[in-house]
Design a protein around this nucleic acid. Sequence first.
DNA 1: TTAACCCCGATCAATTTAATCGTAAATAGT
DNA 2: ACTATTTACGATTAAATTGATCGGGGTTAA
Lengths: 132, 132
Amino acid sequence: MLKITRKVEYALIALRHMQEKEKDELTNAKEIAEQYAMPVELLAKTLQHLAREKIVEAVQGPHGGYRIKKCLEDINMKDFFEKMEGPLGIMDCYFDSDCTLLPMCNIRTPIQRINESMRSMFENMSVGEITQ
Amino acid sequence: MLKITRKVEYALIALRHMQEKEKDELTNAKEIAEQYAMPVELLAKTLQHLAREKIVEAVQGPHGGYRIKKCLEDINMKDFFEKMEGPLGIMDCYFDSDCTLLPMCNIRTPIQRINESMRSMFENMSVGEITQ
DNA sequence: TTAACCCCGATCAATTTAATCGTAAATAGT
DNA sequence: ACTATTTACGATTAAATTGATCGGGGTTAA
Ligand code: FES
Ligand code: FES
Protein backbone atom coordinates (compact mmCIF):
# COMPACT_ATOMS: atom_id res chain seq x y z
CA MET A 1 0.00 0.00 0.00
CA LEU A 2 1.20 3.49 -0.89
CA LYS A 3 4.37 2.20 -2.49
CA ILE A 4 6.25 3.57 -5.45
CA THR A 5 7.19 1.19 -8.25
CA ARG A 6 10.57 -0.13 -9.20
CA LYS A 7 10.34 1.74 -12.44
CA VAL A 8 10.18 5.04 -10.60
CA GLU A 9 12.92 3.97 -8.25
CA TYR A 10 15.18 2.98 -11.15
CA ALA A 11 14.43 6.24 -12.89
CA LEU A 12 15.41 8.32 -9.88
CA ILE A 13 18.59 6.36 -9.28
CA ALA A 14 19.55 6.69 -12.92
CA LEU A 15 18.87 10.41 -12.94
CA ARG A 16 20.94 10.95 -9.88
CA HIS A 17 23.73 8.89 -11.36
CA MET A 18 23.72 11.00 -14.51
CA GLN A 19 23.53 14.20 -12.58
CA GLU A 20 26.78 13.42 -10.87
CA LYS A 21 28.55 13.44 -14.19
CA GLU A 22 29.68 16.29 -16.39
CA LYS A 23 26.95 17.96 -18.37
CA ASP A 24 26.79 16.35 -21.84
CA GLU A 25 28.62 13.26 -20.73
CA LEU A 26 26.80 10.13 -21.81
CA THR A 27 25.93 7.12 -19.66
CA ASN A 28 24.69 3.88 -21.11
CA ALA A 29 22.10 1.59 -19.63
CA LYS A 30 24.49 -1.24 -18.95
CA GLU A 31 26.75 0.90 -16.81
CA ILE A 32 23.93 1.99 -14.53
CA ALA A 33 22.34 -1.44 -14.36
CA GLU A 34 25.60 -3.02 -13.32
CA GLN A 35 26.45 -0.44 -10.75
CA TYR A 36 23.14 -0.68 -8.96
CA ALA A 37 22.35 -4.34 -9.64
CA MET A 38 19.25 -3.73 -11.70
CA PRO A 39 17.94 -5.88 -14.55
CA VAL A 40 19.35 -4.18 -17.63
CA GLU A 41 16.29 -4.59 -19.78
CA LEU A 42 13.93 -3.05 -17.31
CA LEU A 43 16.23 -0.14 -16.68
CA ALA A 44 16.67 0.30 -20.42
CA LYS A 45 12.94 0.54 -20.82
CA THR A 46 12.77 3.06 -18.03
CA LEU A 47 15.43 5.19 -19.66
CA GLN A 48 13.59 5.00 -22.95
CA HIS A 49 10.53 6.21 -21.18
CA LEU A 50 12.47 9.11 -19.69
CA ALA A 51 13.72 9.90 -23.19
CA ARG A 52 10.21 9.91 -24.63
CA GLU A 53 9.26 12.35 -21.91
CA LYS A 54 12.20 14.57 -22.89
CA ILE A 55 13.68 14.36 -19.44
CA VAL A 56 16.80 12.72 -20.81
CA GLU A 57 18.21 12.67 -24.29
CA ALA A 58 19.23 9.46 -26.02
CA VAL A 59 22.18 9.07 -28.36
CA GLN A 60 22.18 5.88 -30.39
CA GLY A 61 24.99 3.81 -31.77
CA PRO A 62 28.28 2.73 -30.22
CA HIS A 63 29.45 5.06 -27.46
CA GLY A 64 25.86 6.20 -27.29
CA GLY A 65 23.86 6.54 -24.10
CA TYR A 66 21.76 9.02 -22.22
CA ARG A 67 22.25 12.43 -20.72
CA ILE A 68 19.99 14.70 -18.74
CA LYS A 69 18.13 17.15 -20.88
CA LYS A 70 15.58 18.97 -18.79
CA CYS A 71 16.53 20.91 -15.67
CA LEU A 72 15.46 18.59 -12.91
CA GLU A 73 14.60 21.45 -10.60
CA ASP A 74 11.85 22.33 -13.01
CA ILE A 75 10.00 19.05 -12.79
CA ASN A 76 7.91 18.43 -9.74
CA MET A 77 7.45 14.96 -8.35
CA LYS A 78 3.73 14.86 -9.00
CA ASP A 79 4.29 15.43 -12.71
CA PHE A 80 7.20 13.04 -12.69
CA PHE A 81 5.11 10.28 -11.12
CA GLU A 82 2.31 10.92 -13.56
CA LYS A 83 4.66 10.86 -16.52
CA MET A 84 6.06 7.54 -15.37
CA GLU A 85 3.00 5.81 -13.99
CA GLY A 86 -0.11 7.70 -14.96
CA PRO A 87 -2.70 9.45 -12.78
CA LEU A 88 -1.75 9.92 -9.16
CA GLY A 89 -4.44 9.28 -6.58
CA ILE A 90 -4.90 6.97 -3.64
CA MET A 91 -8.02 5.56 -5.28
CA ASP A 92 -8.82 4.99 -8.92
CA CYS A 93 -12.16 6.66 -8.53
CA TYR A 94 -10.37 9.98 -8.21
CA PHE A 95 -10.10 10.06 -11.96
CA ASP A 96 -12.17 8.02 -14.28
CA SER A 97 -15.88 8.25 -13.94
CA ASP A 98 -16.43 9.45 -10.43
CA CYS A 99 -16.34 6.49 -8.11
CA THR A 100 -18.31 4.07 -10.24
CA LEU A 101 -17.22 1.24 -8.03
CA LEU A 102 -19.13 2.10 -4.93
CA PRO A 103 -22.21 3.95 -6.04
CA MET A 104 -23.22 4.74 -2.50
CA CYS A 105 -19.77 5.65 -1.31
CA ASN A 106 -19.91 7.88 1.75
CA ILE A 107 -16.30 8.99 1.88
CA ARG A 108 -16.00 10.65 -1.49
CA THR A 109 -15.30 14.18 -0.29
CA PRO A 110 -12.76 13.29 2.37
CA ILE A 111 -10.98 10.96 -0.02
CA GLN A 112 -10.71 13.80 -2.50
CA ARG A 113 -9.18 15.91 0.22
CA ILE A 114 -6.54 13.30 0.93
CA ASN A 115 -5.80 13.04 -2.75
CA GLU A 116 -5.33 16.76 -3.00
CA SER A 117 -3.01 16.77 -0.02
CA MET A 118 -0.90 14.05 -1.50
CA ARG A 119 -0.77 15.64 -4.91
CA SER A 120 0.17 18.99 -3.54
CA MET A 121 2.82 17.49 -1.32
CA PHE A 122 4.49 15.97 -4.37
CA GLU A 123 3.89 19.09 -6.37
CA ASN A 124 6.01 21.04 -3.93
CA MET A 125 8.95 18.71 -4.33
CA SER A 126 11.22 18.83 -7.36
CA VAL A 127 12.96 15.87 -8.91
CA GLY A 128 16.21 17.79 -8.61
CA GLU A 129 15.70 18.00 -4.89
CA ILE A 130 15.64 14.20 -4.76
CA THR A 131 18.55 13.59 -7.07
CA GLN A 132 20.41 16.59 -5.68
CA MET B 1 1.21 3.14 -7.43
CA LEU B 2 0.50 4.97 -4.18
CA LYS B 3 -2.93 3.43 -3.80
CA ILE B 4 -4.77 2.50 -0.67
CA THR B 5 -6.26 -0.99 -0.40
CA ARG B 6 -9.88 -2.03 -0.47
CA LYS B 7 -9.56 -3.15 3.10
CA VAL B 8 -8.75 0.38 4.21
CA GLU B 9 -11.46 1.79 2.01
CA TYR B 10 -14.04 -0.61 3.42
CA ALA B 11 -12.92 0.20 6.94
CA LEU B 12 -13.34 3.92 6.44
CA ILE B 13 -16.74 3.54 4.83
CA ALA B 14 -17.88 1.27 7.63
CA LEU B 15 -16.62 3.65 10.29
CA ARG B 16 -18.37 6.57 8.72
CA HIS B 17 -21.54 4.55 8.44
CA MET B 18 -21.40 3.69 12.11
CA GLN B 19 -20.57 7.19 13.11
CA GLU B 20 -23.77 8.46 11.59
CA LYS B 21 -25.76 6.36 14.02
CA GLU B 22 -26.53 6.89 17.67
CA LYS B 23 -23.72 6.15 20.03
CA ASP B 24 -24.07 2.52 21.25
CA GLU B 25 -26.29 1.53 18.38
CA LEU B 26 -25.08 -1.66 16.71
CA THR B 27 -24.56 -2.28 13.01
CA ASN B 28 -23.96 -5.71 11.60
CA ALA B 29 -21.65 -6.59 8.74
CA LYS B 30 -24.43 -7.64 6.41
CA GLU B 31 -26.15 -4.28 6.63
CA ILE B 32 -23.05 -2.35 5.65
CA ALA B 33 -22.02 -4.79 2.93
CA GLU B 34 -25.43 -4.58 1.31
CA GLN B 35 -25.67 -0.84 1.47
CA TYR B 36 -22.31 -0.23 -0.16
CA ALA B 37 -22.17 -3.31 -2.39
CA MET B 38 -19.16 -4.88 -0.76
CA PRO B 39 -18.39 -8.60 -0.45
CA VAL B 40 -19.73 -9.49 3.01
CA GLU B 41 -16.89 -11.78 3.94
CA LEU B 42 -14.17 -9.31 3.21
CA LEU B 43 -15.93 -6.54 5.03
CA ALA B 44 -16.55 -8.90 7.94
CA LYS B 45 -12.87 -9.60 8.13
CA THR B 46 -12.13 -5.92 8.04
CA LEU B 47 -14.52 -5.26 10.89
CA GLN B 48 -12.97 -8.07 12.89
CA HIS B 49 -9.63 -6.43 12.34
CA LEU B 50 -10.99 -3.11 13.54
CA ALA B 51 -12.33 -4.92 16.60
CA ARG B 52 -8.97 -6.51 17.35
CA GLU B 53 -7.47 -3.04 17.19
CA LYS B 54 -10.07 -1.81 19.66
CA ILE B 55 -11.34 0.79 17.25
CA VAL B 56 -14.76 -0.80 17.22
CA GLU B 57 -16.39 -3.13 19.67
CA ALA B 58 -18.04 -6.36 18.61
CA VAL B 59 -21.16 -7.77 20.19
CA GLN B 60 -21.82 -11.40 19.40
CA GLY B 61 -25.04 -13.35 19.14
CA PRO B 62 -28.33 -12.45 17.49
CA HIS B 63 -28.90 -8.72 17.20
CA GLY B 64 -25.19 -8.37 17.66
CA GLY B 65 -22.94 -6.20 15.55
CA TYR B 66 -20.34 -3.51 15.86
CA ARG B 67 -20.15 -0.05 17.32
CA ILE B 68 -17.45 2.53 17.45
CA LYS B 69 -15.35 2.32 20.57
CA LYS B 70 -12.42 4.65 20.29
CA CYS B 71 -12.83 8.35 19.64
CA LEU B 72 -11.95 8.63 15.97
CA GLU B 73 -10.50 12.09 16.41
CA ASP B 74 -7.82 10.49 18.51
CA ILE B 75 -6.51 8.14 15.84
CA ASN B 76 -4.35 9.62 13.16
CA MET B 77 -4.35 8.24 9.66
CA LYS B 78 -0.74 7.10 9.79
CA ASP B 79 -1.45 4.88 12.77
CA PHE B 80 -4.70 3.75 11.22
CA PHE B 81 -2.98 2.71 8.00
CA GLU B 82 -0.29 0.94 9.95
CA LYS B 83 -2.81 -0.89 12.09
CA MET B 84 -4.63 -2.06 8.99
CA GLU B 85 -1.79 -2.69 6.58
CA GLY B 86 1.50 -2.61 8.41
CA PRO B 87 4.48 -0.28 8.03
CA LEU B 88 3.87 2.83 5.96
CA GLY B 89 6.60 3.85 3.55
CA ILE B 90 6.89 4.38 -0.17
CA MET B 91 9.63 1.75 -0.31
CA ASP B 92 10.08 -1.40 1.72
CA CYS B 93 13.65 -0.54 2.43
CA TYR B 94 12.44 2.20 4.76
CA PHE B 95 11.91 -0.44 7.39
CA ASP B 96 13.51 -3.79 7.40
CA SER B 97 17.22 -3.92 7.10
CA ASP B 98 18.12 -0.63 5.48
CA CYS B 99 17.76 -0.97 1.75
CA THR B 100 19.22 -4.43 1.35
CA LEU B 101 17.87 -4.62 -2.15
CA LEU B 102 20.06 -2.07 -3.78
CA PRO B 103 23.30 -2.09 -1.89
CA MET B 104 24.64 0.82 -3.81
CA CYS B 105 21.47 2.85 -3.76
CA ASN B 106 22.21 6.53 -4.25
CA ILE B 107 18.83 7.96 -3.28
CA ARG B 108 18.57 6.67 0.25
CA THR B 109 18.51 9.98 2.05
CA PRO B 110 16.06 11.73 -0.25
CA ILE B 111 13.76 8.71 -0.17
CA GLN B 112 13.76 8.85 3.60
CA ARG B 113 12.79 12.50 3.39
CA ILE B 114 9.83 11.67 1.18
CA ASN B 115 8.81 8.93 3.57
CA GLU B 116 8.90 11.32 6.46
CA SER B 117 6.82 13.85 4.58
CA MET B 118 4.21 11.28 3.77
CA ARG B 119 4.10 9.89 7.25
CA SER B 120 3.80 13.28 8.83
CA MET B 121 1.09 14.29 6.39
CA PHE B 122 -1.00 11.32 7.49
CA GLU B 123 -0.05 11.86 11.09
CA ASN B 124 -1.66 15.27 10.97
CA MET B 125 -4.94 13.90 9.76
CA SER B 126 -7.38 12.13 12.07
CA VAL B 127 -9.66 9.31 11.09
CA GLY B 128 -12.53 11.32 12.51
CA GLU B 129 -11.73 14.07 10.06
CA ILE B 130 -12.28 11.62 7.24
CA THR B 131 -15.40 10.00 8.55
CA GLN B 132 -16.63 13.31 9.91
C1' DT C 1 -31.87 -25.72 20.74
C1' DT C 2 -31.86 -23.01 16.95
C1' DA C 3 -31.05 -18.96 14.22
C1' DA C 4 -28.42 -14.87 13.83
C1' DC C 5 -24.66 -13.07 14.67
C1' DC C 6 -19.12 -12.71 15.26
C1' DC C 7 -14.15 -15.08 14.71
C1' DC C 8 -10.33 -16.73 12.02
C1' DG C 9 -7.17 -19.27 9.26
C1' DA C 10 -6.65 -21.29 4.67
C1' DT C 11 -7.30 -21.22 0.05
C1' DC C 12 -8.30 -19.60 -4.53
C1' DA C 13 -8.79 -15.80 -8.12
C1' DA C 14 -7.74 -11.45 -10.05
C1' DT C 15 -4.92 -7.71 -10.62
C1' DT C 16 -0.78 -5.32 -10.72
C1' DT C 17 4.06 -5.10 -11.02
C1' DA C 18 8.52 -6.93 -12.47
C1' DA C 19 11.34 -9.20 -15.58
C1' DT C 20 12.53 -11.26 -19.97
C1' DC C 21 12.46 -11.96 -24.94
C1' DG C 22 12.72 -11.01 -29.79
C1' DT C 23 13.23 -8.07 -33.35
C1' DA C 24 14.19 -3.51 -35.11
C1' DA C 25 16.94 0.62 -36.13
C1' DA C 26 20.87 3.84 -35.60
C1' DT C 27 25.81 4.77 -35.97
C1' DA C 28 30.93 4.69 -34.98
C1' DG C 29 34.92 2.27 -36.26
C1' DT C 30 37.11 -0.50 -39.57
C1' DA D 1 29.97 -2.45 -46.79
C1' DC D 2 30.33 -4.99 -42.49
C1' DT D 3 30.32 -5.52 -37.63
C1' DA D 4 29.90 -4.47 -32.91
C1' DT D 5 27.58 -1.54 -29.84
C1' DT D 6 24.06 0.88 -28.56
C1' DT D 7 18.97 2.57 -28.18
C1' DA D 8 13.69 1.43 -29.31
C1' DC D 9 9.65 -1.05 -28.31
C1' DG D 10 5.94 -4.26 -28.32
C1' DA D 11 4.86 -8.99 -26.60
C1' DT D 12 5.21 -12.35 -23.39
C1' DT D 13 6.06 -14.65 -19.01
C1' DA D 14 6.87 -14.70 -13.97
C1' DA D 15 6.27 -13.03 -9.43
C1' DA D 16 4.07 -10.47 -5.94
C1' DT D 17 0.30 -8.30 -4.06
C1' DT D 18 -4.36 -7.72 -3.33
C1' DG D 19 -9.13 -9.20 -3.30
C1' DA D 20 -12.55 -12.61 -2.57
C1' DT D 21 -14.27 -17.02 -1.01
C1' DC D 22 -14.59 -21.13 1.87
C1' DG D 23 -15.08 -24.00 5.85
C1' DG D 24 -14.96 -24.62 10.27
C1' DG D 25 -15.49 -22.62 14.66
C1' DG D 26 -17.78 -19.58 18.89
C1' DT D 27 -21.50 -16.81 21.38
C1' DT D 28 -25.99 -15.72 22.83
C1' DA D 29 -30.94 -13.97 22.54
C1' DA D 30 -35.26 -15.82 21.89
S1 FES E 1 -15.66 5.21 -4.39
FE1 FES E 1 -14.53 7.08 -4.75
S2 FES E 1 -14.19 7.87 -2.73
FE2 FES E 1 -15.41 6.12 -2.40
S1 FES F 1 17.12 0.96 -1.68
FE1 FES F 1 16.32 2.12 -0.01
S2 FES F 1 16.26 4.18 -0.76
FE2 FES F 1 17.20 3.06 -2.35
